[in-house]
Nucleic acid binder design. Structure first.
Lengths: 208, 208, 208, 208
DNA sequence: TATGAATGAGGCTTCATTCAT
DNA sequence: GATGAATGAAGCCTCATTCAT
């Protein structure tokens, strides 16, 4: 029985791999169940043993991606916390930016799924929950950088970090753009750090 | 003849409106020519007098959106330049952020189209050119804010501004997120301003 | 009024020319009314002033072709009859084969129309009548070659002549095939000539 | 597995039958995939499991017809060769003409397909190859009748035989026409036989 | 459980024909 | 008469899903 479950999990994994590749190539619109099966070397109808529908398969794929993203963030976070001391904004970014970027570049389909899934599929809401996991991880990691920051603002900052990384880094591959994008994040984090020491202001104006 | 052209343009416009609404609701995948026709009160086959194919219709829709975005940027730019003097980062954002955000919020489909069009459609390349128009406008406007900035860097900054606005503001509608997003942009612009006075550095380190 | 009719006839002619060209290129299946109009420089809807329907246009085209074929046969017949004397089979073929072949080669569409028009269109029957005109002409010309042949057999021979020419000469363009095809016709005509002198046999067996 | 393949072949066969019937009735133009499905009692989309497209279905149909024609020729050839001795032209025709005629009359669609397939479909070239099989068979059979004839001329003669049979016999169903057509072929074969004994001439004039 | 044949709804597109201008 | 925009029936094809084996 165990080996059976094992095999089943591998099958699911292979199917999701094929699906991911396909979305990457042809977008959500070009995603066809039969092609997934073909690429995974499975039979047409077998897909429906693992996923209730096309929609469910896409949702599962998206969920897996988010889990991977979460894992990447956690790993970076752990690496960072090994260096006991409070990191600088630059060190913080060094730890997180590359894994995030790597993931987002390797998984062009992540973006396609995140944006391209019609609201009609109820994936949207549960997707928000999934994203929340990644953001929570990032927020947790921010505690190292800006220990004094309140929980709520940390979530806010994490949200922005993820979103900015996503947009800036992915849309444009030119290195200048990426460098400049990194600078923006650095500025933001440094501001967070320096501001928190004085005042937990919320109408965040930078002092004149 | 003139009235004919007039009517034709209105027809195209109505069709694009219906198409936009549809993409907004169902995404690119759910976009069906017949439904566009139904909503525009036109016959099935009439669409093909104005657009060669489904793909062409989506491309035309996307182009119109970018033109509207461009127009919004130009308008904001003109309003800003009425106030002769050099604006502050805050004033600059006041001028540009709201119109951009309004547009992006009103046009959820813009994002769907931008991301969701399969690469196979060669829209991508011409789309890059179209986007360039918006960025060029933004870069031009930046001359008011940071007169000393070199052309190249202005384009870079404009790219980031558009991209950050797009991602931050659209993905999350919560006002806190939007406020924080705005702060990031403010920080970035202020940094640009203050750095340029001293040094046109490119390895942008933030001054202490 | 006359010039109007004149112009109208030219218009019809131009339309048929375009139609013929189109059938030649794309076959009956690829024949589209709008393309005919485009090639003739006429407006879409104008076609229907001259032809009741697509089907009627094709029928008219076919009728014109048959008239042209008939004219070619008549012309050859007249040329032949200028040489007062009874011609040999070879002379007879010299007179008729080339014009027929020329026509059939220039008008690939003739064959397409003759064969490709569905029986459902009632063209078939009237077409048979039209063909009859050509055959009658050929039969008439045969009187010169085989004066003693009865009317009925002359029609039969003419039918075969037309049919053989059509198939042999058109299907295969290789000169050897055409030469051999000509030989068949020559044999047939010579047999007719020689047999008729003796017996108007109908169980036409050639003596062993 | 075997029974599966068996069933599959029967399905294909049934589909082709329906298709053939349809072409016979409505011509190539009237040939509609959905109607084929309806007549074969299959679902719309099932056709596409067996044939890539409408065009492919028509090509397959044509190929089947040519195979059947080839089989008919081979069968006739075998029957003829049972009679060890050299046959007369009449015996030769007795053996071949009826099967050919039967086939061509039963398969009106053969002609429609042969002529009516747009050149754009590249069927033409491969079709020529297919036809070559039938002609080769006929040429082979001619060896019995005219043993002395060179290969090249035999192919020529076979080409004409097929072509003449096709045109003469099909276009006109009247028995007189068919009888006369048969006479033409007889004349031709006899001439071949008698000429070969004397001279393998190529500028084939018939000696008196 | 796996398979892949079968299904049929649904999409895109073409084009003959009509008709207001 | 001429025009060409509009219509909508009809065709081809895809693909998610089911189900007998």
């Amino acid at each position: 029985m165990k080996p059976k479950q094992e095999r089943s999990r591998m099958r699911v994994s292979a199917l999701l791999d094929a699906a991911e590749e396909l979305v990457e190539e042809l977008g959500v619109e070009g995603f066809a169940m039969s092609e997934v099966a073909r690429r995974a070397g499975a039979a047409h109808g077998s897909l429906y043993r693992y996923f209730e529908s096309r929609e469910a398969l896409l949702a599962a794929l998206h969920e897996r991606q988010i889990s991977q993203l979460e894992a990447a963030v956690i790993e970076a976070s752990e690496k960072l916390s090994l260096t006991q001391v409070v990191p600088s904004a630059r060190e913080f970014l060094d730890a997180f930016l590359d894994p995030l970027r790597d993931f987002l570049i390797r998984n062009r389909s992540y973006r396609l799924l995140r944006i391209g899934m019609p609201d009609a599929w109820q994936v949207a809401s549960s997707e928000a929950e999934l994203d929340a996991r990644v953001i929570a991880e990032l927020a947790h990691a921010l505690k190292n950088l800006v220990p004094g920051l309140e929980e709520e603002r940390r979530l806010l900052a994490a949200t922005l970090l993820l979103s900015l990384t996503d947009s800036t880094i992915i849309i444009e591959h030119r290195p200048e753009v990426q460098r400049e994008g990194r600078r923006v994040l650095e500025l933001y984090l440094e501001d967070l750090v320096s501001n928190v020491s004085c005042e937990p202001s919320r109408t965040g104006g930078t002092t004149s």
